[in-house]
Each structure stands twice: as structure tokens, then as C-alpha cells.
Design a protein around this nucleic acid. Structure first.
Length: 764
DNA sequence: ACTTAGTAAATTCTC
DNA sequence: TTTACTAAGT
């Protein structure tokens, strides 16, 4: 309220940073020495406190490079850095250490790679690479993929690693045949990755632990450097992360962890809620601060969230309150099926937007599973409502994009077997499965890498002359460009190299729409490297590849644009919206079927709902359907048990009766919300959609025809600006969602097709 | 060795 | 409904 134009930079005194904080927040910022547990309820200004705390440290004279902040997402790290740079200037912010566990440790491991038997150019394997490696290993061991699904093996190996169980320990404690076989695969998998000079995500943590345990001098150096350690979302740390954090904090014990046990939703990937529950036991001298005032939501929303979460057993003591207004009651939409649910949600959202003056970006639709987005998308499209999906099929998961990245990975790390096997016959070079079997067999027998085996192709028994020639050509391309790796800048090297592989040409000559799409995506990747290089002159191929590997799908560039956001509740963590819709509140879906009989799973689902509800600032809408298509089949379901747990006082009157008693929920009823209009909605004024007569009626999903064409923020004729190509005019828009493309005629005469989600286009 | 057709399986969430 | 793998045909 005071118009204070504080210049950004060195002129903000430490004490001024505390302006406007409540007592708990002030304590959290000021308690800089010793261990500190901040229990930060939803919407309690956690990020603000964290960033102020760092800024405060810097103002007290702490060297920014002595501060390390660990987060779970790139987004969180990015936001923290940005806000800190606003408080203390970008030069200070830049020299502090802030990033995800994985990115910080990847950097550390590159620096000390030789200490643990890797080269600094090691490759980071994503889930697909892991699965590929596991399949190869199972082949080698002669274990059928029918009997043991590779994906299951990957899951078991990953959770073992998350709990810091080595393959030796795993094999020793294996009881069942399944576990014994998994143990075998685990062993070979580890060897294969080591030989490939590759690490999976879990290895980034485990190898850091190994490094610090076996090389005390490295740990000493780090101890010297990291005097203040901050860990965000501490409730989501797994065993390995817990271990690293404690090792790093050991010397100065200036460890500040922030979290909310009520928002722990990653148990399935090894997060151990005990880490936060036991913090005071681990650090008996710890100060504990509870941020209990919520600045985000209305009293109604907070009460609803509280009524749900208090059903859970284990919890850290805290009671959230808010001084915000009472706010609107919560609406529950009872629907016949998923299509009607989607329609009602779409219409509710539109009517609220016009009624309350919201804009599209003020609205989020949240759901439990990604599959649910389909029906919602259709409904929004039909109503021409702009939306975007956070985390769909990532651009980087596309085949042609992965192929390009694999080629690049081979260049910096020729031992990367998974990448070689992926692209060696892409485009077809006449190197088939039989040939590759022989190569791999040879590699295993002589204990060499696949790349070395390829170089010796001529002496491998049974090899066809034609195959040898093809392999030599392939190896030739790689070796030729390897020589230029440290001479050419990444962008031009990649351009020439990918050209030489023949991959883009393969798609270009096919001329089909799909092929041209793929060709275009390849161009996009190459352009992206050029863009990144321009932003960061020190960019190397290794650092580019690492950046891509550690990118997550939730790092969505379109967030905050003028569209409704749709995402899973997991992806919504940390975000907030004035109006939030949660869809699919049904038994078997939310909570998921497997959670219905498992109390721990059920509590996690409940926490997930808590996260969902507390994303809402002003209004909340909940929806469920009585039947729904799941894997193409119509299934019936009862409303979620969670609906009955929400404090009735917070629900709008029309909704109250529907969830009143549980006994009537079993029988399918006509949907009440349609007939009894709630206070805020009057559906009677909106034309009813055509009745969806029966189960047998095929769902006319807009698969074919122009119906698929979604609304876009970009329209033909609009002027836009691209960071590389300059200004231009949009001549066409095609595709939807993540793959939405705009054809742009730039002023310099170039015509390009750009992925809207990918190219940073600004409207003019 | 590669293409195609047909069948089976899968659907949670992430760095 | 879509994707992924297998088997048979060219």
C-alpha cells in the first residue's frame, strides 16, 4: 500500500526484508543458524519465506556461493532464483547454488566422474532407456518378457535403488522366483549401465552418496562450500536423498527443511514421509516453525480441505487458518457419464468466467489420471474454450526427437549402447536384428562395449559382408564428427552431423504428413540447440543433453497464458488458481482401485485430494460420473468416499443432499445437479446437450475431420515475434495441444512451421 | 532384412 | 482407444 519504489539491488537492508511478514514467517526468515524445520501449510507463503530467508542470509553478509537450495522441480528452483534476484540483484542470485537434486548432483558427478569410474561425458538414462536396457539384459539372460514384464522389473529395481539396496543385497534377500530373476537382471543391468558410461535417475543420487562416502576430500570441500543448506518439499525426499542431505549438512548443521506432511504425495516413488516426521529426532536442537496462516484460499475452501485431511492418522500438529473471506460454497456436479461430466464442467467454467469476470488463465481443471483429459478436451473444444494441458506426451518423448538426441549422445559418449542400438538402423542401413544379436553376443563375450564391437565388426564370426560394410559406414560418421566435437560450436556441429546421419532426409522424401511432421520436429530440435547456444555461450553438447535429460514434463512454457489449465493433481502441486475444478471423484478412480483396501495408499490419495482442494483460491467445483469409459469399456462407479468426508457446511445446498448419506450412493440415480440448479449456476438457461441415449451408442470422438481442430491463442493473420527469426505473420495454425503448430512467414522471407508449445512466439 | 497385419496389453503419479 | 510386440509374408 505504501508506494515504495525500492531500487532493486544493494540498497535493501536486511531488516526491510521482514516487512509485512507475520511472526512465524519472521522467525523462519531470521533463524539462520542451526537446524530448522519449517512446517508450511498450503498457501502459507512458503516460497516467499524461503526466498526472503536466502536474501536475508546474503544481506547478513553470507557469501551466496555458500548457500545451496535443493528442490524437486526445475520450476521451483527457477522461481526461487528469480525472486531472489529481485530482492538482492541478479549477480548475487546467480552465484548461489539452487537446483533440483538431480541437476545439482549431475553437475557434481561430472566434476568428479573419474573418482567413481565414469567419464565426465556420462549419459543420463531416462525411463525409456532403462526399459530398453532391461529388455536387452533379459534377452541376454534368456528370460521371457511375457513371463516377467520389463516395466515391472524397472519399477522393482528403481524402488530398490531409492531405498539404497544394492543388487547384491537384493539378490540375497530374494525369496520368490520373480525376485530371484529380478536380482539377476538387476545385476546385469548395473553392469550394462556401468559399461555404457551411463546413469539412470536413481544413480545420480546413489553415485553422489558413493562419491561422498569414499572420497572424504570431496566431502570436505563440499562441507567447506555449503554452509547453509535448504531443502524444499522435504516430505517428498526418499531414503537416498535423506542420506545425502544429512551428509552435506553434517559439518555446519545449518539445515533448513521446508515441507508439509499433509502434501506428501510421492510415496510410490520412494518418498518417505518419516523423513519429515522424524526431523526433530534427527536434530534434537532443531527449531520448529509452523506457518499456519493461509493467504491463498477462502475460509470455505480451507474448511473443506481440513475436513478431508483430518481423517488421516499420522500428522504433524498444525492448524491452518485464514483471515480471507468466507467465499462461495463448493459446488458438486453429479453426472451420468464422463461425457456429461466434461460438458457440465465446461459449461460451469464458462458461466463462472462470465459471471465473476474470471479470465481463462484463472481456471484449472484437475484430475487423477491423464486419461481423463480426453473427454474434457473434447468438451472444451466443442465450446471453443482455449485450454492447454500441462504434461501430456512430451515433445522429447517423440520417436524422431529421441532419435536425434540419441545420435548426439553417441557423439559425446560412444559407449552409450542403448543409444547406438536405438539409431543404428534409423534410417534403415541394412543392419537387422540378427546382425545386432551377433554384435551384442560378441561384446558380452569379449567384455567390450557395443561401440568397440562394431569397430571390430569384420572379425565377428558369421557376419555378413553387407552388414560389415553398413556398420563401418555408421561408425565412420560418428568418428568423423567426434573429431569436431570440441572444435565446432554445438549448434553447427549438430546440424551437420544429423544431416550426415540421413535421418532428416529419410522423413523429408516420404512426403506424407506424418513424415513431414517428424522432419519438422527434427529441425525444431536443431533450432533449439542454436537458441540455447545463443542464450548461453558456454553451452556444450554435454550440458545441452543434460539439460534435456533433466527436463520434466511439468516444465510447461504455456502456464500463465490465456487458457484454462488442465493437469493431474500431482502436476498442480505448488500452483494456485482462483477457480479449480476437480473431476472424477469416484471410487476406483479417486481413490484408485488399489487404494481402496490399503490404508496407506488411501491416506496418500486423501493427501492428494487435499493438495487439489488447496490449489483453489476462491471457488471450487467437484465432479463425478456414475459411469465412465475406461480402456474403451463402460464401467459403473460410486461417488468417491472422499465426497462424504467433506464438511457439509462448505457445500452448496443442492449438492448437500447428494452426498448426504452413503447408502443411497450405491444405486444409480438421475443426476440431481441437472434438475436442482445450485445457487450460482442455472443450467436451465443453458440449452441441454443432446441425450446420450445408450451404452451401445459409439462415442463420436472427434478423431476425424475438422472437429479435432482446437481453439488456439494464435490465429491466422496475427503478427508474432520469434527470438531467432524475428517478426512475421501467422499464415496457418494446425494440430492441438502440445503438438499445435503455427506456420509463420517471417519478414526475412523465411517460412517456418513452429510448434507453439516449443517456439517462444510473442504476439505483437 | 524389412514390411505388414494382427493380437495383446495397458492406463497413476516423476526427476 | 491407443500403443507395442509377434508372426508371417515379401
Amino acid at each position: 500500500m505504501t508506494l515504495k519504489l525500492t531500487p532493486i539491488g544493494d540498497s535493501v537492508p536486511a531488516a526491510d526484508l521482514l516487512n509485512g511478514l507475520n511472526p512465524a514467517q519472521t522467525t523462519a526468515v531470521q533463524t539462520t543458524e542451526g537446524p530448522l524445520l519449517i512446517i508450511a501449510g498450503a498457501g502459507s507463503g512458503k516460497t516467499r519465506v524461503l526466498t526472503l530467508r536466502v536474501a536475508y542470509l546474503m544481506r547478513l553478509g553470507v557469501n551466496p556461493s555458500h548457500i545451496l537450495a535443493l528442490t524437486f522441480t526445475n520450476k521451483a528452483a527457477q522461481e526461487m532464483k528469480e525472486r531472489i534476484s529481485h530482492l538482492v540483484g541478479s549477480h548475487m542470485a546467480k552465484s548461489m547454488w539452487a537446483g533440483t537434486f538431480h541437476s545439482i548432483f549431475a553437475r557434481l558427478l561430472r566434476q568428479y566422474a573419474d573418482r567413481i569410474g565414469y567419464t565426465p561425458a556420462f549419459t543420463i538414462y531416462d525411463t525409456d532407456d532403462q526399459t530398453a536396457a532391461i529388455k536387452a539384459v533379459m534377452n541376454q539372460l534368456g528370460i521371457s518378457q511375457q513371463v516377467i514384464p520389463p516395466n515391472g522389473v524397472r519399477g522393482r529395481i528403481s524402488s530398490a535403488k531409492n531405498s539404497m539396496i544394492s543388487w547384491q543385497e537384493y539378490a540375497r534377500s530374494a525369496d520368490s522366483i520373480l525376485e530371484k530373476q529380478t536380482g539377476q537382471i538387476f545385476e546385469e543391468y548395473e553392469k550394462r549401465l556401468a559399461q555404457s558410461n551411463a546413469m539412470d535417475f536413481d544413480d545420480l543420487l546413489l553415485n553422489t552418496i558413493r562419491l561422498l562416502e569414499h572420497h572424504p576430500d570431496v566431502l570436505d570441500q563440499l562441507h567447506d562450500r555449503i554452509r547453509y543448506l535448504l531443502v524444499d518439499e522435504y516430505q517428498d525426499t526418499n531414503r537416498a536423498q535423506y542420506r545425502v542431505v544429512n551428509m552435506l549438512a553434517k559439518k555446519y548443521r545449518n539445515l533448513c527443511v521446508v515441507g508439509d506432511d499433509a502434501q506428501s504425495i510421492y510415496r510410490w516413488r520412494g518418498a518417505d514421509i518419516k523423513n519429515i516426521l522424524d526431523f526433530e529426532r534427527d536434530y534434537p536442537e532443531a527449531a520448529v516453525v509452523r506457518l499456519e496462516q493461509n493467504y491463498r484460499s477462502t475460509k470455505t475452501i480451507l474448511a473443506a480441505a481440513d475436513s478431508v485431511i483430518k481423517r488421516n492418522s499420522k500428522q504433524l500438529k498444525k492448524s491452518l487458518f485464514t483471515e480471507n473471506a468466507e467465499g462461495e460454497k463448493i459446488t458438486v456436479l453429479a453426472c451420468r457419464d464422463d461425457r456429461e461430466e466434461a460438458d457440465m464442467i465446461a459449461r460451469t467454467v464458462r458461466s463462472r468466467i462470465s459471471q465473476y469476470g474470471y479470465s481463462y488463465k484463472d481456471v484449472a481443471i484437475l484430475y487423477r489420471t491423464n486419461a481423463q483429459s480426453q473427454a474434457l478436451e473434447d468438451a472444451l473444444r466443442r465450446g471453443n474454450t482455449p485450454y492447454h494441458i500441462v504434461s501430456g506426451v512430451s515433445f522429447y518423448k517423440r520417436k524422431e526427437v529421441k532419435d536425434v538426441l540419441s545420435y548426439l549422445r553417441i557423439l559425446v559418449n560412444p559407449n552409450d549402447s542403448e543409444s547406438i542400438l536405438r539409431v543404428i538402423n534409423e534410417p534403415v542401413r541394412g543392419i537387422g536384428a540378427t546382425t545386432l544379436d551377433r554384435v551384442q553376443e560378441f561384446a558380452t563375450r569379449t567384455n567390450t562395449t557395443v561401440f568397440d564391437a562394431l569397430k571390430k565388426a569384420a572379425i565377428i564370426p558369421m557376419m555378413q559382408q553387407r552388414a560389415i560394410k553398413a556398420i563401418q559406414d555408421f561408425v565412420g560418421i560418428i568418428e568423423r564428427f567426434q573429431e569436431m566435437l570440441y572444435e565446432l560450436a554445438p549448434a553447427s556441429l549438430a546440424q551437420a552431423y544429423i544431416e550426415a546421419t540421413g535421418l532428416p532426409q529419410m522423413y523429408k522424401v516420404q512426403q506424407s504428413e506424418d513424415a513431414l511432421d517428424r522432419w519438422n520436429n527434427i529441425e525444431r530440435v536443431l533450432d533449439h540447440i542454436a537458441e540455447q547456444q545463443e542464450l548461453d555461450e558456454t553451452l556444450t553438447m554435454v550440458s545441452y543433453l543434460e539439460q534435456i535429460a533433466l527436463l520434466s514434463d511439468t516444465d510447461d512454457p504455456q502456464l500463465g497464458t490465456e487458457r484454462i489449465a488442465m493437469m493431474t493433481m500431482h502436476a498442480a502441486k505448488g500452483l494456485e488458481f482462483p477457480l479449480v475444478v476437480i473431476a472424477g471423484l469416484e471410487q476406483g478412480l479417486f481413490p484408485l482401485a488399489k487404494a481402496e483396501n490399503d490404508i496407506n495408499e488411501q491416506e496418500e490419495e486423501r493427501r492428494l485430494l487435499y493438495v487439489g482442494i488447496t490449489r483453489a483460491k476462491e471457488q471450487l467445483v467437484l465432479a463425478y460420473a456414475e459411469r465412465r469409459y475406461r480402456f474403451g469399456e463402460l464401467v459403473f462407479s460410486r461417488p468417491s468416499m472422499f465426497l462424504g468426508e467433506i464438511d457439509k457446511e462448505t457445500l452448496a445446498p443442492s449438492a448437500r443432499s447428494m452426498t448426504g448419506n452413503n447408502s443411497q450412493q450405491a444405486a444409480p440415480r438421475p443426476s440431481p445437479a441437472y434438475s436442482q440448479s445450485s445457487q450460482t449456476e442455472s443450467y436451465s438457461q443453458i440449452p441441454m446437450p443432446k441425450r446420450y441415449t445408450s451404452v451401445s451408442q459409439p462415442k463420436a470422438r472427434g478423431v476425424q475431420g475438422p472437429a479435432k481442430e482446437g481453439p488456439s491463442t494464435l490465429t491466422t493473420g496475427q503478427r508474432v515475434k520469434h527470438p531467432m527469426f524475428g517478426a512475421g505473420i501467422v499464415t496457418a495454425v494446425s494440430g492441438t495441444g502440445q503438438s499445435e503448430k503455427a506456420t509463420v512467414l517471417f519478414d526475412n522471407g523465411q517460412k517456418k512451421q513452429l510448434m507453439i508449445a516449443f517456439a517462444r512466439l510473442d504476439t505483437l
